Structure formats: structure tokens, C-alpha cells
Simulated assay, not measured.
Amino acid sequence: MGDITTVEADAIVNAANTSLRGGGGVDGAIHRAAGPQLKHECITRFPEGTETGAAILTKAYNLPAKNVIHTVGPKYYEYESRVERAQELLSSCYRRSLSLAHANGLTSIAFPSISTGIYGYPIEEATKIALEQTRSFLETPEGQNFQRVIFVVFSEEDFAVYRDALPEYFPPSPSDTVSDVANP
């Protein structure tokens, strides 16, 4: 539980909107902490923005992380009659972010809880997708290069969901502990 803008990693993931211009929640916090150069890079390099489920890489500017991976999660309320499609898009956010990090030689990444804020994705379902996609990727040859994957949540309620689901996807060894504060 903590503030993703304070995490030192090769990349933090931004739960972006399709315009890549900043917004509310995690997106706004990352843009504010990174400084105006982040918005300028997004506008200059990606004038059309990006699509839901995609991931793009920028510099991190004033953040302690080295890079920002922007991914656009689904607005759950737009897919209530097509839940499978929402699951596919959210899964794509995690897979593409991890693939992009790997393709750029990054070995540590921090994720927020994508789409669970204003986009309304139920936290329990979103957490399972996040952990399942991360576990699946880490089991591939490309995933072997990662040294650290961090999930950073903002609320105690979200932390409890991640804490309870984590052992199902990442069974603890005797020396593992789950921290309640993001201390990269």
C-alpha cells in the first residue's frame, strides 16, 4: 500500500486514458509528479493517443522510476454485457506492459490496480487478472529476466484483496513476506 509515484523501479505503470494527456487518479498523480515533460512527450510522440489494452513507454522525468509504461484499461461499465471482452482488454494491459518492459531490457516494474478506480472494474476480478497475467508472463523465457514486480495499491481495502489473492498465484516460500508499504 502506497504511492506509486515514489517507487524506484525500471518502470512504473500508468493507468492512462486513451489520450495519454493525464487525467485523474493514478494517471493524474503520475503526470503531476513527473512534470510537464511527460505530457509533452506523450503529445509529441503519440499525438493520436493509444487504444484500450495497449502499452507505450516514455521517460519518467521527475519520478524516481526510470520509465513510465502507459496502459489503457477498459471502462468496465462499457463492457458489462461483454465481460469476456473487458477481461481480454485488462489482461492485455498486463501482458503488453510486461512485454514492453522486457523488450526494453527492464527488470523491475510496479503496477497500480488498473481500471479499478473511476473505470469501475471490480477489484476482486481485476486483482485475479493482474496476478494471473503476471504469473503467466514470469513463467515464460522472457519473464525470467525480471527481478522484481511490485503491485502498489492506494487503499487498505484494495491491499486486503491483493494480500488475500497473492498466495494463490505466488505461493510463499518460508522466507517470503508481504509488505503493507511499498518499499522498493
Score class of each variant (00 low, 15 high):
F154N: 07
E8W: 00
G117Y: 12
L57K: 05
L90T: 05
S115R: 01
Y119L: 01
V68H: 03
H102M: 00
E80C: 03
Y119S: 01
E168L: 11
G53L: 02
I30D: 13
Y76H: 06
N67H: 15
A60P: 07
V7E: 14
V68S: 02
I114Q: 04
L38F: 10
Y169Q: 06
E139P: 02
G117S: 05
E8D: 13
I56T: 13
T18A: 14
N104I: 11
D164K: 08
G143M: 08
E8K: 15
Y76P: 02
T58E: 10
H70D: 11
S155T: 15
A182W: 13
K39N: 14
G22E: 13
P171M: 02
N145M: 10
E41P: 01
I12E: 13
M1C: 09
L38V: 06
S92K: 01
N62P: 00
V72L: 05
Y94S: 03
R163M: 03
Y61F: 15
A55C: 05
D10W: 02
T71C: 05
S179L: 15
Y79D: 04
Y79F: 14
I123M: 11
V13F: 10
Y121R: 00
T116D: 09
V149M: 07
L106P: 07
L166N: 01
T71Q: 03
A16E: 12
N17D: 15
F159Y: 15
E124I: 12
D180W: 10
I114T: 05
P167M: 09
E88R: 05
E157G: 04
G53T: 05
V7I: 15
R96A: 09
F111P: 02
S175Y: 12
F151K: 01
S173D: 14
S81G: 04
Y94N: 00
V161T: 14
E51D: 14
I118S: 07
A182T: 13
Q144P: 00
G2Y: 11
A130H: 04
N14F: 12
L63K: 01
Q87F: 08
P47Q: 04
T177E: 15
T116M: 03
A33H: 07
P174N: 06
V181L: 14
S81E: 15
E78T: 08
A33T: 09
A55L: 03
F170E: 12
R95H: 09
Q37R: 14
A103Y: 02
N17I: 10
L166Q: 04
F151I: 06
L138H: 07
K66N: 13
E142M: 03
T134Q: 06
